[in-house]
Simulated assay, not measured.
Amino acid sequence: MPHSMTGFASIAAEDEGCNWVWDLRSVNARGLDIKIRLPDWLGGLEEPLRKALKASVARGNVSVSLKITRRDEAGQSAINPDGLERALAQLTAIAAEAEARGLRVAPVQPSDIAGMRGVLEQRAMTDEDTAPLLTRLAKDIPPLISQFQASRAQEGAALTHLLSQQIDNVAQLVTAAEGVLPARQDAQVAGLQAALARVLDNSDGADPDRVQQELAILAVKTDVREEIDRLKAHIDAARSHLTSEQPVGRKLDFLMQEFNREANTLCSKAQFKELTTIGLDLKHVIDQMREQVQNVE
């Protein structure tokens, strides 16, 4: 069953004097784009994480983040002198501009300054300290991806159910189109006979056989049996893709283009009210399918 490109997973744990939270999520994308955000002082984890994701995910804009806080005193936040200097300079400039415009600025509390970006930073651990932590964090990767894939599979099941219903609607409309073909043919014959009569009545020495031949060519050009047969083939292909265990999003996306092409041709050839109505309904359902297919991996 196809997976959705939308998914989410989160793992919170603690060990080695630290608390941490993994966040893994994805949204739609044409290909696979992985963005990983890890603490700057933590090295050696990005490569195995990226490798594991590439082995599990075929498409999607995937983002992973890891936030770690240390419980021990050595890991507490420390003031970043450069960050503090920038923050104070910004506050001074804001206060000066406000005063120049006649605005009163409330006193700034130390906690307000501490909360500004870059003022506080986590003290980096030594290489000795990070080795056990890296080993522990690496153990989170398989269950994190497993939870993530379960989320995508659940969303994929919902997508598959919806797409199956829409494909059934397309099949019903194609059957309805076949059903009106006899009436359309009768109307075409009557129209061609009337056109032939008008031509013969208003032509001097026109060759009836030649006129009938030209009208027959027009009838062939408006025949829609080929479009209906192709739509049936597309329906079978779409149903087959929805039972596949492999990523089929690109195939379904291409198939939607083919569905739309045949529906457009059907409408342009219709020349019969009932068939035109069915063709327009087909285009509406196909547009709905195309929207959903954009979410399939």
Rank of each mutant, 00 (worst) to 15 (best):
T69P: 02
R50I: 00
T175C: 05
E73F: 08
D287F: 03
Q76A: 14
L134C: 12
R25S: 14
L91S: 04
A171R: 13
D40N: 13
E214D: 14
E214F: 09
V224I: 12
S56A: 15
Q166N: 10
V285F: 01
I79L: 10
L159I: 07
R71A: 12
L137Q: 06
D40K: 13
R198G: 06
G115E: 14
T243D: 10
R71Q: 14
I34E: 07
E226Y: 08
G31P: 05
I68G: 02
D33G: 03
A216H: 00
P107G: 07
R59H: 06
L53S: 09
R86I: 09
T243N: 08
A87E: 06
Q172A: 13
D40V: 06
D72A: 12
D186G: 11
L103E: 13
A55Q: 14
D223S: 07
P142A: 09
A158G: 06
D15S: 14
I94S: 10
R71W: 04
A138E: 14
P107W: 11
V108G: 01
D204G: 05
E128H: 11
A157K: 07
A270W: 04
E262Q: 10
F254C: 12
S151M: 06
K283A: 01
I278C: 00
T160E: 07
V119M: 11
Q165C: 02
D236T: 13
V296W: 03
T126G: 12
G44I: 04
A197T: 11
V57H: 01
R261H: 08
A158N: 06
L252V: 04
L137M: 10
V189E: 11
V248S: 01
R50P: 11
V170F: 05
F148E: 09
V180Q: 04
P132T: 12
L231A: 05
T6F: 06
L275V: 04
G279V: 01
R210M: 06
E73Q: 14
Q292R: 06
A106V: 15
L49K: 02
D82Q: 13
Q90C: 08
G31T: 08
A93S: 15
L38F: 15
G179H: 05
P107V: 10
I36F: 11
V199P: 01
